[in-house]
Nucleic acid binder design. Sequence first.
DNA 1: CGAAGTCTTGATGCTCATCAACTAAAGTGG
DNA 2: CCACTTTAGTTGATGAGCATCAAGACTTCG
Lengths: 251, 251
Amino acid sequence: MNAVLPPHACPPSCRQCRLRSTGAFTAVQPEVLDFIESFRTQTLAVEAGSDLVRENQTNARLFTLYSGWAFRYKTLSDGRRQILNFLLPGDLVGLQQEFGEVSAHGIEALTDCSLCVFQNDSLWALFRAHPRLGYDITWLSAHEEGHVDDNLLTAGRRNATERVAMLLMHLFRRLDRIGLVEDGAVVFPLNQQHIADALGLSLVHTNKTLRRLATLGLHELKNGRLRLLNTRALARIAEYYDTPPRLMPLL
Amino acid sequence: MNAVLPPHACPPSCRQCRLRSTGAFTAVQPEVLDFIESFRTQTLAVEAGSDLVRENQTNARLFTLYSGWAFRYKTLSDGRRQILNFLLPGDLVGLQQEFGEVSAHGIEALTDCSLCVFQNDSLWALFRAHPRLGYDITWLSAHEEGHVDDNLLTAGRRNATERVAMLLMHLFRRLDRIGLVEDGAVVFPLNQQHIADALGLSLVHTNKTLRRLATLGLHELKNGRLRLLNTRALARIAEYYDTPPRLMPLL
DNA sequence: CGAAGTCTTGATGCTCATCAACTAAAGTGG
DNA sequence: CCACTTTAGTTGATGAGCATCAAGACTTCG
C-alpha cells in the first residue's frame, strides 16, 4: 500500500525530519513545527538536471531543499552561465520569486532532490501568523546574500588557484555542518563545468587548476567523493576564515 | 536657535521625507509611518570616506540611507578589494549585522551621507509589532541579493566592455527611479578606482574601457556628472534588461 | 559497440594586469 | 602668491593568466 520511499525522501511529518536531528538547526516549539507542516502543501522528488525554477519564470514555488544539491544561476544570451550559489539540504529556496515577481535567476537540481513545497502566495500570511518565522526567513535571506557576497569577492578578486581552494573549503564546511561528512569525505556531485561556472573560469583552466591542487596533495576528488588532505594549506590559499557554527533556522 | 541643516539632511519627521514623495516607494498608513519614526533613534550626517560599518565589526547599526551614496565591500589581506553593491537613497543598510553577528563586509560612505538610524537589537521587536514591515524588510533583503546576483554575473562572465556598460546602465536606472536624474544627467561620485573595484578589473583597464565607450559616444562623464548618450547601444552591450519599475518599501 | 559525457593535456593567442611616466587639478603651507 | 604635495585621470609598453582550440583517454549507457 505504501509506496517505497527513496532513501532521502521527505518524511510524512516534519517531526521525523532528519535535518532537525543534525544539531545544525535551531529548535522550534512543537506547535510551530505543526504550523510549518501545515504550511507545507506537498513533498516532491525531482531528478538531477530538472529545472526547479526557470529564468524569467513567474509564480515559482517556495520550498525547502530536504535532500540533494541544487544551484542558482544566471545566463547570458550567448550561453555564458554564472552559478550564483549552491543549495544544500536545509536551504530555503525561491524566496526572491515569492514576492509576485519574475525570477531573475534559474534554479537547477544538481542531483536527485527531495523538496518540501510550501503554499503559494502565502508568505505574507506566514509573517502575520508567525512573526518569528518571518524573522527567521529574513535571517536566511541575509545569510544567502552573504554567500553570494563571498562568491562575488571570489570571482572578482581571487585568482584561479584561490578560487578553487575557496570552493572546496566552503562546500566542505557547509556539508560538515549538516552532518554529511563521512570518514573525512563528502559526496561531491559537481562536475568541472559546474565548478568553472561557479568560479567564472573556463572548463579547461578549472581542470588544470584542480589537477595542480590535487598533485600538490591538497585534496582528492574521485568516485564522486571529495576529501580535503591539507585544509591548512587550502585555507591559507583561499584566505578562508571560518565563522563559528551558528544554528540556522529551518522551515 | 535651529541649526542650519545641510541640503539633504534627514527631516525631523518622517512625514516630511523627501524620498516618499518621489513616487518610487510604497505608501504606508500614517500610523505605520509613526511607528517607523519611533523606531528611528537618531539621524546622522557622515562625511565622504567614513566607515559606516567596518569589516568584522560587531554590533553594527541598522539604518536607512537618506541621502548620498555608500557601498558595501570585502577585502583580501593583500588589499584587493571587491565592491559588492552600491547603496543609494532609500536603501536599508546593515541588515546582515542586525542578527547579532560579525559583519562579513564593510560599508563606506562614498559621498557625504545622511542616515536614519534605527534602534539597536530591535529588529525582532519590529517583526512582532508590525509583521508587514518585517515582510517589507525581507523583500528589501531579497532585492539587494538580486543586485549582488547581477554583479556576480557581471564579474564572473562579462568582459570589460560589458561590465562597464552594465554598471553605467544599472546605476543610472536606479538613480532615475528615485528622481535623481536632472536634464538627462546624474551626479556621479564614483572615481575609476571604485568602478574597477566593483567590476573586478584593474584601474588601468577600467580607464581604457571607459575612454573607449566615451570615444564611441555612448556616454559622457565629466565634472562628476554622468550622461548616457546611447542607452540603446549600452543596453545591447551589457544585455541589460530593465525590469518594470516596482514600488519599493521604505523604512 | 557506437554514442555521448567527462576528464585530461598540449598549443596558441587574446584579454587584461602590471609597470612606468606624464598631465591636470586641487589642496597645503611658507 | 607660488613651490610643493597629493589625488585622479591618461596613455604606452610589456607580459602573465586565463580562454580558446584541438585531440585523445576513459567511462557510462542505450
